[in-house]
């Protein structure tokens, strides 16, 4: 694609563009989070946002990296022997891991949105002929 190399000659710029474009595009219940404009501004400083196809390709790496980081964060050795009760009733290790579950839900939301395979829904009902006459 013409101009692609030129736009992505700066790897930092590419990463920032991808992250900003991500937050710029995510909508929650049809509304863009108020945070988005502040996150999208670096797009103007770096080369233009990649096309949709390029964007999705790059997002795959970002999201899989985030999922790997979540698996690392899950190890939680920092609260191993911490008996603090947050709000007076919630063991801190339990609260932390409930947060991991919420983060997983959010990450899978992004994965579904940006990494969804494009070639799996090609099979139509007419192609399936497994039933035999009774």
């Amino acid at each position: 694609m013409p101009g692609t190399k030129q736009r992505h000659n700066n790897s930092l710029g590419r990463q920032v563009t991808t992250f900003c474009a991500l937050f710029g595009r995510v909508k929650l219940f049809g509304l863009q989070p108020a945070l988005c404009p502040t996150l999208v501004w670096p797009v103007a400083r770096f080369p233009a946002a990649p096309t949709d196809r390029e964007f999705r390709h790059e997002m795959k790496y970002v999201i899989w990296t985030l999922i790997a980081l979540l698996a690392v964060a899950h190890q939680d050795f920092w609260f191993w022997n911490d008996a603090t009760l947050v709000f007076g009733f919630m063991p801190i290790t339990l609260l932390y891991h409930a947060g991991i579950s919420l983060a997983a839900g959010m990450l899978w939301f992004l994965a579904v949105r940006f990494c969804w395979p494009t070639n799996v829904d090609m099979v139509g009902d007419s192609e399936v002929s497994e039933e035999r006459p009774t």
Binding site: H74, D76, L94, Y96, A98, I100, S101, A104, A111
Partner: peptide, 21 residues
């Protein structure tokens, strides 16, 4: 104790969806 949640549940949240996906 409370660590049971991290040991199996939160990891399942990551890994089960990974398997579905």
């Amino acid at each position: 104790g409370a660590g049971v949640y991290g040991r199996l549940a939160s990891s399942s949240g990551i890994v089960h969806s990974l398997c579905f996906f």
